[in-house]
Design a protein around this nucleic acid. Structure first.
Lengths: 203, 203
DNA sequence: ATAATTGTGTCAGTGACTGACACACGTCAA
DNA sequence: TTGACGTGTGTCAGTCACTGACACAATTAT
């Protein structure tokens, strides 16, 4: 695979520089106000090179998040048997320990929240995450991946994740997401009970 | 608003022609293989005119679906008090009676399913629908629109809707969606019961 | 009859993204 | 050491979604 270590190193450096510069410019002037040509120039490369590293402008924005998601997925599969919510919580805690949420993550979250045109993109990102979660849950429970309960649970987990991210970003002083996640997951467990009564209260 | 009826009529005709031609071309050659210039030319207008009627190429594709969603929303608000699932089912039945699902709707569904690059767009569409549902549920139950239970219920309804659309499209022979919707909503009601046991089964 | 409104055409852009070709620089075998 | 090879990058021309500005023609209001 890597027969030329020097070339690979240079490639990694270029990619990292592009992400660094890109996020900084996005944070400064907004996602829509920064062109890919600007990012490339600020990183000292050509626009063509930027698109050799990232399939799209969005891919550059979500590069960090995608990496974090991949790491998180790996942690999920390592969790011992038990309730799904417990495993999720443990994975969150482990990831936060090995790689604490930094300003970078907050910057990306702020950019996405500040840019209405990115709403659909966020949904697309969540869709992939939801798919990953569904596969994990399905394997864990030894059921088909398109099982309805699995789908719903995955959807709910993603919704909880979004709530956590928003809350974490809103309260800039909170250093850990674990308490937030714990609260959200507790709400999910309660959800299973409050669902039916909510419908019945209309009668 | 409409001080010039002739102008308005011509505008409506042009718009309808653009949608007709666009869907036909999309169905023939695929969404990504058709340019907006082609659609405009085939409709006898300029590309600029196309973008005066539709904010984007996606807007043209979802024009019919958006209209159906607006109609459906209106029907939802007309439903008498009662369980949410009953109201949804009644609205579906009413809409199907006044405006049966035609080949057009199937065409759009097929185009979306056949085009991977449209997956994110579909999520964006669903996001708006989910928001609409959440507002409706919140008003119906007289609770805040950002209530967690409301959010989850809206998300589940949207997921059920997607399942229905897929199933309806898969079985090309089914003339009505009402039975499919009934089954999906029944699954949701069961969901409220099977949620906790599913978690517990892991212990 | 005249002025305002409205739908459209024309034209010249901007910006994301791609294909094709060439070059420079490491790497590896002869 | 020399030459073949792979790989990251630059250059350039091009496609396509989408926009702003201006003009024209038909309809409608005064």
């Amino acid at each position: 695979m890597t027969e030329a270590p020097a070339a690979a190193a240079r490639r990694t450096e270029t990619r990292q520089r592009l992400v660094d510069v890109g996020l900084e410019l996005f944070a400064q002037r907004g996602y829509d106000e920064v062109t890919t040509a600007e990012i490339a120039a600020a990183a000292g490369v050509t626009q063509r090179t930027l698109f050799r590293h990232f399939a799209s402008k969005l891919d550059l924005l979500f590069a960090d998040a995608d990496q974090a998601t991949d790491d998180f997925t790996e942690l999920l599969y390592r969790q011992p048997p038990g309730p799904v919510t417990d495993a999720v919580l443990a994975a969150i805690a482990e990831q936060e320990q090995s790689m604490p949420l930094d300003e970078r993550a907050a910057v990306v979250a702020r950019i996405v929240n500040d840019t209405p045109s990115l709403e659909d993109a966020r949904r697309g990102y969540e869709r992939r995450f939801e798919q990953t979660l569904a596969e994990w849950i399905a394997q864990r429970h030894a059921v088909a991946p398109d099982n309805f309960d699995v789908r719903v649970l995955a959807a709910v987990l993603v919704a909880a994740r979004r709530a956590c991210v928003n809350e974490w970003q809103r309260s800039a002083g909170v250093a850990s997401v674990v308490p937030l996640a714990r609260r959200a997951l507790a709400a999910i467990d309660d959800e299973a009970l409050s669902f039916a009564p909510m419908e019945a209260s209309e009668h």
